[in-house]
Design a binder for these strands. Structure first.
Lengths: 346, 346
DNA sequence: GAGTCGTGAGAAACCGTTTTATCAAGCGTG
DNA sequence: CACGCTTGATAAAACGGTTTCTCACGACTC
């Protein structure tokens, strides 16, 4: 099969019996001409299967319909849904995404950014695996707009993060709503901004005397925390809100091994809604979903507006989390309003 | 800070006191000129911070230094390492990657492919979550080269897959090498080509009478399989080779709950080396790594050669797996030669 | 019937680079 | 000293579109 020569606007013009200029204007719905002419050109183009060369187009217009996505999460559970959301928001506008994984390597990052700039991207979205860390590259002062999603940016930048406090509040209120009264919070290292934000919200709702313990983001830490709590009758909670799903899984496993029934004796809530962990836990975890895909969609929308020159208010935008109810807290009679939707997404 | 105008080759030429043509040739090490002139132009370009406009360049040359990556794995554990490998192979050549997630949606796929073609990609790499399924889009007869990685392509295509049989053989031999004699294989649905390939290799090494049971790819199935085996004294194996790490984790958990010691009483091997599962299992899993990153690197190298017009032999290339030794089989006195390297990558 | 105006369409310039064709100068040669 | 050859450098033509500017023509006005 011979490689079909790609047909150019020149061909369309010739076949339709008009000039190249007229053809261009007809196809872009610009300029003035008879409606008949416009239709004729369009039909000819369709018949010939004409597709404009995006390179040539980008050269004259100031848009390449291309954006760059920079991440240092190669490419873990946080970046993945964010990417999916970005793509979803942009595909309808004919915008393609350059994916660049930079492994906390400043030189590699600079290399990728230069390559993007050379390729005339209309904007750059920076994303990472941690909300309170910056990528190892300076994106300020670039000639293209930048949006930061799930990673820290300069103060005057457009930044999107999930609302950790709101998510933690919702989880805690849910536990209280199920009649639990002795709440505990088992979470990650205090050096994470997310950890302190969630802990703050937990304290505000559960009361200042509710226990909070910090440790690594691992299943093993979940086991250890349970061991600590159950070492004395006085410290045993009837509900445990965990900083992520891995810790929650460790907690649930440890409780089962001790003969403590989940959710009958103790309710457990996780954080992240990491399907593979949350759904495999026995019983499956009720957990907080950070809505990362929606965060990605929003990032896509914003970078698009910026690329089109529309003004976007700089600052940090917090997007709400939602609780996904499974079985680790018991029946769902008191499920929050968004429950149905949440389960659907699972 | 005023947006600095991007400087063009025209500026370089003017400052260096040469024509645009000379400047172009100087910078690309083509054409003929005094070495002094060439150096002067290069220094001027460097001093001015000149970066060529990739769009303009792509218009004249026949290369855009851009490739498209199509995946229906949005974007799970298989595509991720493959992508990382591809990027790694291409970044040094100044090639950027368009990432397109198509959710088994033929219309979306066609949309993305058209967008890629419009953007003059130099090639397309198709990848997926399953080695024996095709993407819902026909990539044959395109005017750009295509490489299939971890997904099925046409017979006359360039295809890269991991060597399931070799991986399974290595795992099985490893169990025999540790003195185990009653081997069993707990794996996924028989409808997967990977499953039958691994089972075939397992049988060949462990003997035709070694048990093989098929089920879903889940932890729960691991539990259930153990229950079946332990229902009778006659059927209890002393080593279990699992079809993936999730099943293996279910098996290990089930054994522990029954008071069967791993690895003392029973050795367990997984498949996939999915860090998050393999490392969190107690004890951590010895498992087969499909070397997906290397597979991605190879895909990158191949698409590059094809884009440069070099001939590449079509057909299926199988890349070897390697065993990653952790603790679920006991000490590592008999570790295979690649053990050191394997552990390093963990 | 001459002047004005709105309208449809095309010629040409342009985007930023590469590449081809051309050309002037220098240099040895017969 | 005229001739051909090599060499360094440039002008100009691509590449495939968009956009600005110009123009011819018919209708309308007075």
């Amino acid at each position: 099969m011979a490689k079909a020569e790609r047909i150019r606007i020149y061909d369309v013009a010739r076949v339709a019996g008009v000039s190249v200029a007229t053809a261009s204007k007809a196809l872009n719905d610009t300029g003035r001409m008879t409606d008949a002419t416009r239709q004729r050109v369009k039909q000819t183009a369709a018949a010939l299967g004409f597709r404009p060369n995006a390179m040539a187009r980008a050269l004259t217009q100031q848009r390449s319909f291309t954006i760059g996505l920079l991440t240092n999460d190669t490419y873990g559970r946080f970046t993945l849904p964010v990417m999916a959301g970005i793509n979803e928001a942009l595909v309808d506008h004919g915008v393609s995404v350059f994916l660049c994984g930079i492994e906390d390597d400043a030189a590699l990052a600079a290399l990728h950014v230069d390559a993007m700039l050379d390729k005339q991207v209309d904007g750059i979205i920076a994303t990472g695996k941690r909300i309170d860390r910056r990528l190892p590259v300076d994106l300020s002062g670039l000639q293209v707009p930048v949006v930061y999603a799930f990673t820290e940016g300069p103060d005057d930048a457009v930044t999107l993060v999930s609302d950790d406090e709101q998510g933690a509040r919702q989880a805690t209120e849910w536990l209280l709503g199920r009649g639990r009264r002795r709440l505990a919070h088992v979470t990650g290292p205090q050096s994470f901004a997310s950890v302190t934000a969630r802990a703050r919200a937990f304290s505000a709702v559960a009361g200042a005397d509710a226990a909070i313990v910090y440790g690594p983001w691992s299943e093993a830490w979940g086991h250890e925390a349970v061991a600590q709590f159950w070492s004395s009758d006085a410290t045993r909670p009837d509900a445990i809100f965990c900083g992520n799903d891995q810790i929650a899984r460790g907690v649930v496993d440890a409780l089962r091994e001790r003969g403590v029934a989940v959710p009958e004796d103790v309710s457990v809530v996780g954080f992240d809604n990491w399907e593979i962990v949350a759904a495999a836990t026995r019983p499956p975890l009720t957990t907080v979903d950070m809505n990362l895909k929606e965060l990605g969609r929003e990032a896509g929308r914003l970078i698009l507006e910026l690329a089109e020159g529309k003004p976007v208010e700089p600052g940090v935008r917090k997007l709400p989390c939602k609780l996904v109810v499974r079985q680790s807290c018991g029946g769902d009679a008191l499920a929050p309003r968004n429950k149905g939707e949440a389960l659907q997404e699972v």
